[in-house]
């Protein structure tokens, strides 16, 4: 068992390190960013039981702030990403404080409404470049000497961020805090009766999720050298729900698989134009009808049944 596990992680590491020599690196980086975004979203939905419909606000805010400060203030990439992440976390605190008092559909609607306000700001404020977005954001030099314009260096940088981000999510889920979060998700009145002030725990989960979504958005801006309105649009909030459900919410690998699948489809079907939306929609409906636990969730159930 443990030999198998070591072999599994070794294979995965080799694949991750050699992937840019086999697949177009920019596609890989984009997939990693969205996988991190979906994993951050899943921390909230799958482990705290909170369905946010406004996560584009965090991805987008970080994307714009990182893009602007790197391009116009000349911040180094690591500082730009840090700034975007912290800003998204702070915005998450405001959203969370307003939304967590409500549950279910009301929670989702409040997050949607707040994220629409961020979208409006992005359209109106001059520094975002309006419909054009922020273009030609320079990738710059990591720590002043690693040239990120080289796709290979950039890929390993993004891979590092991805591993750290997903690692933090794994740690959070398997931490004392994660235990309380599970307890709250499973039986909130009981958690209260055991003395937990549940709103504070939900708020911390929200802030962590928002900050990590911001980390994904900030990194994405540097990868594509672009921050645009589609980053803050509610389509993006919907897409991350789709990625997570498709892969399997409440599983660690589910959102990653879902994100790679959706980004992959968008990429390889790009020639078909607006048909992409219809095809991904069709796949989504099929998946939800056939495997309610998502791809990873179903595989796990199958694995458990056969052993």
């Amino acid at each position: 068992m443990s030999i198998n596990r070591i072999l599994f992680w070794f294979t995965l590491a080799v694949l991750a390190l050699t992937a840019p020599f086999m697949v177009y690196p920019v596609f890989l980086m984009k997939a990693l960013c969205f996988a991190l975004f979906a994993a951050a979203f899943n921390l909230l939905l799958g482990y705290a039981g909170l369905l946010s419909f406004g996560h584009a606000a965090f991805l987008g805010t970080a994307a714009y702030l990182t893009g602007y400060t790197v391009k116009d203030w000349g911040l180094t990439p690591e500082l730009g990403i840090l700034l975007g992440t912290v800003a998204a976390g702070a915005l998450g605190f405001v959203f969370g404080a307003l939304a967590i008092r409500r549950q279910g559909i009301y929670f989702a609607m409040i997050t949607l409404a707040l994220s629409q306000m961020i979208f409006f700001l992005a359209v109106q404020m001059p520094f975002t470049g309006g419909e054009d977005g922020l273009q030609a954001v320079p990738r710059g030099y990591l720590f002043g000497f690693i040239d990120l314009n080289d796709n290979l260096s950039m890929y390993y940088f993004v891979l590092t961020i991805f591993v750290l981000g997903v690692g933090l999510i794994y740690r959070t889920v398997h931490s004392p805090f994660g235990q309380v979060l599970t307890a709250i998700k499973e039986n909130e009145p009981r958690a209260i009766s055991l003395g937990y002030q549940v709103d504070r725990y939900k708020l911390l989960a929200f802030v962590l999720s928002a900050a990590l979504a911001g980390l994904a958005g900030a990194t994405k801006t540097l990868v594509l050298q672009l921050a645009s309105l589609s980053d803050v649009h509610w389509h993006m909030s919907g897409e991350v729900v789709l990625m997570t459900l498709l892969g399997g919410m409440g599983t660690q690998a589910g959102p990653l698989v879902g994100a790679v699948l959706v980004v992959g489809l968008q990429n390889y079907l790009a020639d078909l134009g607006s048909w992409v939306t219809i095809i991904t929609g069709g796949i989504f409906v099929t998946c939800v009808l056939l495997f309610r636990r998502g791809i990873v969730g179903e595989l796990r159930a199958l694995w458990k049944r056969s052993f």
Partner: peptide, 19 residues
Amino acid sequence: VRVALQQRLGTSFHFWRST
């Protein structure tokens, strides 16, 4: 049972610690 006990450690917000 541990979820009830763990409050006294004061680490219930520590998301960076292992279970």
